[in-house]
């Protein structure tokens, strides 16, 4: 499912060097578990989920999450990251169908 997928990321614009910041991410996605039935035809709707999410800062990993079918629709994650220097957070979502959704946010040192 490549349509209507929109990543949203909330990162503070600036932070003190070495401090911890809280990051919130949300991506719109149906996360079809493969267990629901089509109400009209009675057939199973095939599984289509985002199976992996990663967050990196200047190439260093913050979190790497392997997602299964029991993650909610529109997957939401909140976590804490350390900001050692000015740079860019890179967020990547990997879809079952091979699509990759990306978002990036720059952070300045206050």
């Amino acid at each position: 499912m490549a349509s209507g997928v929109k990543p949203r990321v909330k990162v503070p614009k600036s932070a003190a060097a070495g401090s911890a910041i809280t990051i919130k991410t949300l991506i719109s996605h149906k996360m079809e578990s493969g267990r629901r039935k089509d109400k009209k035809t009675g057939e199973l709707i095939p599984r289509s989920i985002i199976n992996r999410f990663t967050c990196e800062f200047n190439g260093q990993s913050v979190v790497d999450i392997a997602m299964e079918t029991s993650i909610s629709t529109n997957p939401f994650f909140q976590f804490d990251a350390t900001v050692p220097e000015a740079g860019e957070f890179k967020f990547t979502w990997y879809d079952d169908d091979g699509s990759v959704y990306e978002a990036a946010k720059k952070v300045k040192i206050a």
Binding site: E56, S70, I71, S72, P75, F76, Q78, F79, T82
Partner: peptide, 27 residues
């Protein structure tokens, strides 16, 4: 109690400030 019990596994990298994570799951 879910058909597929494993919900998510999270690996914390060197820049994770604290080992905590919030998410929304299906039950």
């Amino acid at each position: 109690g879910n058909p597929e019990p494993l919900t998510a596994s999270v690996a914390f990298g060197p820049l994770a400030a604290a080992q905590n994570i919030s998410m929304r799951i299906r039950l």
